[in-house]
Design a binder for these strands. Sequence first.
DNA 1: CCCTGATTCGC
DNA 2: GCGAATCAGG
Length: 138
Amino acid sequence: MAWTEDRIDQLKKLWDNGLSASQIAKELGEGVTRNAVIGKAHRLGLKSRPSPVKTDGEKKKVAPKKIAKKSGKKFVTLLDLTDRMCKWPSGHPGDADFQFCGKASEPGMPYCAGHCAEAYQAQPPRRDRRQLQRQPIL
DNA sequence: CCCTGATTCGC
DNA sequence: GCGAATCAGG
């Protein structure tokens, strides 16, 4: 696939938007790999970014997007949600404030580490479940 | 293992 | 110029 002006523009835009190379690759689709994106970006002389994925000892916020203006919670809309982002919902589906956590989800998980903890809590009230019906072994 | 960007190097 | 392979790092 050749890098058309259109694609390059999209690349620049997404890259500038802070999307990761792999995300941009997916966005562009058409068998574009993250390597292609990075390679092109590098070639275009786009700003280098020493792996933004370092837990960063810095407590500085990057302000991912100014989408979730309301609620201090940095949630994102469905449009900003991508494959490996936490899909922890917030609000009612259909509502304007229906958003998702959007943080990087744990590998293989639909949610981020924090929400996985919430989602996969161990059986809480096991107390009043005894003799529920005392089913005869299957 | 998951991921990130950076660089190399044959095409 | 392109991008897969590779490298370096979290």
